Amino acid sequence: MAWDRVEGNWKQIKGTIKEKWGKLTDDDLDVIDGKREQLEGKIQERYGVEKSKAKAEVDTWFSDYDRRP
Rank of each mutant, 00 (worst) to 15 (best):
P69W: 06
N9D: 15
G34C: 06
K51E: 05
Y47A: 12
E57N: 11
D59Q: 04
K23T: 03
W61V: 09
K23R: 14
Q44T: 03
K20T: 15
I32M: 10
E40Q: 05
S63F: 13
K55W: 01
D26G: 12
D28N: 14
W61E: 00
R68C: 15
G22C: 03
K42M: 00
R46V: 15
V31Q: 09
K20P: 05
E40S: 11
I43E: 00
D28F: 02
K53R: 04
K14R: 08
D66S: 11
L24R: 02
D28Q: 01
K18Q: 13
G22P: 01
L24K: 05
Y47C: 02
E37N: 11
K23C: 08
M1Q: 13
K18I: 07
A2F: 10
R5A: 08
L29G: 01
E50M: 09
I13T: 07
G48N: 14
D30W: 13
S63P: 04
K35A: 10
G48E: 13
L39E: 00
W61G: 00
K55S: 12
E19M: 11
A54W: 01
E37W: 06
E7Q: 09
R36P: 10
S52T: 05
R67F: 07
W21T: 09
K23E: 00
A54C: 03
E45M: 13
E50T: 05
Q44E: 01
E37M: 08
V6R: 07
A56S: 14
M1C: 10
E50N: 07
K18C: 03
G34F: 06
E37A: 08
V6I: 14
P69E: 09
K23M: 12
E40V: 11
V58E: 02
I43H: 05
D64Q: 11
I17A: 00
G8C: 04
W61N: 01
